[in-house]
Design a protein around this nucleic acid. Structure first.
Length: 811
DNA sequence: GATGTTCCATTTTTT
DNA sequence: ATGGAACATC
């Protein structure tokens, strides 16, 4: 049994040996936390603690599975409950649903379903969503729920317009969910917490039952989760939590850092153990991450100790474009695989937002390398899967109005908007679900023959499925697919392209069902199937046997490790995300996010940014992230691979419209221009010919790595004039005359961009009067514009250098 | 009511 | 770029 304690350092051993009383493990990245947890449980079991009295709560199913797996190798099969908060709560609610007014066959709505329900609620509440989107509203309500704020608590407390709106919609949303016998993700926690609060007997029973509770990633728990754990740790405060405040990255989801910061106060006589030795990363990687995180104000200092031998320097790379970035990384991966026999699965590419995966995917596919993308559009969110599952949901829970809505006319069976509206009204009048409403409708609603027939058929289908649901899940699904001729419908909806994928997804769903059919289950298979789908996340099955490059967001990477890590698009407005700019707290969370990403790496780490990146279809100039300026750059390997930049710039030169847009975006808007942007632009322009000297304003410093400045500080100090500013100024001063004035030796010329003469600008000509520029091309004085004159409606072309054109208005 | 077309916002991160 | 919603047409 002492083998359990072998190969543990003293702090780890102390944690493993701790049994009774609260325990706080402050575990830095790579400090062997999972190992400590599993060994500790194994130790407890060996000491005679019954496994079923231990409750392990994790953040992802993946983490739970991993621990279960490791535990199995230590003590064999054991019957402890280890899972996510959400699945634990789901289980709790299934058993005690009546305590919160739900039937036990309630449905768990995913974000999509919840949004549909919210939309319905907004409609019922008869409010107008003017300046807030449905998504924002959903998030606000989610935050309230995470803080255990019920609709009643909101009454009379609303001050702002938003608060009034929420106070109005939130209760109706909750009602809607209740009537649909459904809960959203947040409800799982909130209902559980409330249930524990209002049922002292149940609380005491669970407290007694789960004598030992263990919470992983405690820094990411929110108030609802706190309430749940706390209430089960009163009589038996054997609560052990592990976490790292520096890895708190779910503040936006209501995670409350105070949970971990105040743990010692909360639970008297807490034993605190710090795990600061890092067994994962090279000293280079660890030190870079450590230097970065020290820029956070709101943290507890900690002393990360590297234990591994020195490795290669952390790389910091600048690319010309996101495409170059992706290609180079793929190149590096291939080289590494060839030269030192690395496997593809040793590599991870991490990014801030899911959208950033695309370029990597393209590059990997082009190179013929397999990849595994975690997150993004998830399997269970695909239309074809959701459609089919909605039928099952409706079958399992006939009150599920969201499922009904999704399913009733998919595939189209002639039940249109108006019919559905009538049906809805009928159901509401009778206080019944939509499905029941449908039954009523057949007699009570005047329907077209077709609609009536469809409704009858639909109800017959549901009956048939009800019959079938006693058998195997696969058969049920198969019957459904055949009856509604679903594959044919899909083929029609998505013409030609990618229908192979779609069909594969359906097959995969069938396979999932078949797999479940073969398992021994302690519950209703249909229910288990649906719940799995609802609480499943892609992160959970990331380590498939296949050898592939891993692609995922920084959030999804939490808790994982890889020999080689690339963090891409470390750029201003992406890695500190745009939405976090003003909020220092959110800014710190962004920094922690990068910290988490960096500390995933074992051997090698590369951070990169690109100077231009396409966003929503067009190329934008990017500035390096302020976080890169905070890194110990002297100790890193820095390289600037922007030689492709000029090639990109040239492609713009050939396309004047594109350049016009570019100009607008960077000089014509009121946005402040960072030095990076400005010099990037000047670099581009000086590469061409006869400029107007406009650049001189900007041509200070190159964008080379050595001159990287903190974009935040420099932005504030140097508000650069924009093209429009200057034109407006000169127009006002009546100094802007004709294009001739833009001649080389004209004083004004130094300041007027010929590009000011662009499409839609109003100009006037001594002979033809005024007109509008309808097209423009060329640079500088050779610029040619076509003007459509208001007088005779005719178009004429001019070369700026020679024509006497006067700019009347810039746009 | 179904199908086709255009326009529009949209994207932070996830159980 | 892309998919959804609003609008138009069959």
């Amino acid at each position: 049994m002492n083998s359990l304690l072998d190969r543990l350092n003293s702090a780890q051993r102390e944690a493993v040996l701790h049994m009774d009383g609260p325990l706080l493990m402050l575990a830095g990245p790579g400090s062997g936390k999972t190992r400590v947890i599993t060994h500790r449980i194994a130790h407890m079991i060996q000491q005679g603690v019954p496994a079923w009295s231990i409750l392990g709560l994790t953040f992802t199913n993946k983490a739970a599975d991993e621990m279960k797996h490791r535990l199995k190798t230590l003590v064999g099969d054991s019957h402890l409950w280890m899972g996510t908060f959400h699945s634990f709560c789901a289980r709790l609610l299934r058993r005690y649903s009546r305590l919160v007014g739900l039937p036990e066959n309630f449905t768990i709505y995913d974000a999509d379903d919840a949004e549909m329900a919210l939309k319905a609620a907004v409609k019922l509440a008869e409010v107008e969503l003017t300046h807030i989107t449905i998504g924002q509203l959903a998030q606000q309500i989610s935050r309230l729920k995470n803080r255990l704020v019920t609709p009643e608590m909101l009454l009379g407390n609303a001050v702002s317009h938003d608060e009034h709106l929420i106070a109005r919609v939130y209760p109706i949303y909750q009602q809607y969910l209740l009537r649909s016998a459904a809960v959203d993700f947040d409800d799982l926690l909130m209902h559980s917490a409330i249930m524990l609060r209002t049922s002292p007997d149940l609380r005491a029973e669970l407290d007694r039952g789960y004598k030992y509770i263990l919470v992983d990633e405690y820094q990411d728990t929110n108030s609802a989760q706190y309430a749940i754990i706390k209430s089960m740790s009163i009589d038996y405060p054997n609560l052990a939590v592990t976490g790292d405040p520096d890895q708190s990255i779910y503040g936006w989801r209501g995670a409350n850092l105070n949970n971990i910061l105040n743990f010692e106060k909360d639970f008297p006589k807490t034993k605190v153990i710090r795990l600061e030795e890092n067994y994962r990363s090279t000293p280079e990687i660890l030190s870079a991450a450590d230097v970065l995180i020290q820029n956070n104000q709101r943290r507890k200092a900690k002393n990360l100790q590297a234990t591994r031998p020195s490795g290669s320097k952390v790389r910091l790379r600048t690319y010309g474009s996101g495409r170059d970035e992706a290609n180079d990384i793929v190149q590096q991966i291939m080289t590494a695989c060839q030269q030192n026999g690395s496997a593809l699965r040793d590599f991870a590419v991490l990014y801030r937002t899911n959208a950033q995966s695309r370029l990597m995917e393209v590059a990997l596919r082009k190179a013929g390398l397999g990849y595994l993308m975690i997150g993004g559009f998830q399997f269970y969110q695909r239309k074809e899967i959701k459609d089919l599952l909605s039928y099952l949901h409706l079958l399992h829970n006939p009150s599920d109005d969201v499922a009904f809505q999704r399913v009733i006319n998919t595939p189209p069976r002639g039940l249109g908007k108006q019919t559905l509206l009538n049906l809805e009204e009928l159901a509401r009048k009778h206080g019944v679900s939509l499905l029941e409403g449908a039954e009523l409708a057949i007699d009570r609603l005047k329907l077209t023959a077709k609609a009536k027939k469809s409704l009858v058929e639909f109800l017959k289908l549901m009956d048939l499925m009800r019959e079938e649901s006693k058998g195997r899940l696969v058969d049920l699904l198969q019957t459904l697919i055949t009856k509604i001729d679903y594959r044919n419908y899909l083929q029609k909806v998505r013409r030609e392209e990618v229908d192979a994928d779609v069909m594969e997804n359906i097959d995969e769903l069938l396979a999932d069902a078949a797999e479940l059919d073969n398992q021994e289950l302690d519950g209703n298979p249909l229910e288990v199937f649906l719940e799995q789908a609802a609480l499943y996340s892609e992160t959970d099955r990331f380590d498939s046997e296949a050898d592939r490059v891993n692609l995922m967001t920084l959030h999804a990477a939490k808790g994982l490790e890889f020999p080689y890590v690339f963090i891409i698009a470390v750029e201003q407005d992406i890695l500190p995300h745009r939405r976090c700019r003003e909020d220092p707290l959110q800014m710190e969370e962004e920094r922690r996010l990068l910290f988490v990403g960096m500390t995933r790496a074992k051997e090698e780490l590369q951070l990169s940014c690109a100077k231009s990146r396409s966003f929503r279809g067009n190329q934008n100039i990017s500035a390096a992230s302020m976080f890169l300026m905070e890194l110990p750059r002297a100790e890193m390997h820095i390289s600037d691979l922007t030689e492709q930049w000029d090639a990109y710039a040239d492609s713009w030169d050939n396309d004047d419209t594109a350049f016009g847009d570019f100009f607008d975006r960077h000089f014509g808007s009121d946005d402040e221009v960072s030095p990076q942007r400005a010099s990037a632009n000047s670099k581009k322009k000086t590469a061409t010919d006869d400029d107007l000297g406009f650049d001189q304003h900007f041509d200070q410093g190159s964008a080379d790595v050595e001159t990287w400045e903190d974009p935040n500080t420099s932005k504030r100090n140097t508000r650069l004039p924009t093209g429009n500013d200057r034109v407006a100024e000169l127009l006002a001063a009546n100094k802007l005359k004709t294009a001739n004035d833009l001649g080389e030796d004209s004083a004004v010329a130094q300041q007027i961009p010929a590009e000011a003469f662009r499409v839609n600008a109003i100009v006037s000509h001594p002979t033809y009067g005024s007109g509008k520029i309808t097209s423009a091309s060329g640079k500088g004085l050779r610029r040619t514009v076509t003007v459509e004159f208001f007088g005779d409606g005719l178009s004429r072309s001019f070369v700026l250098k020679f024509a006497k054109l006067t700019l009347e208005s810039a746009d």
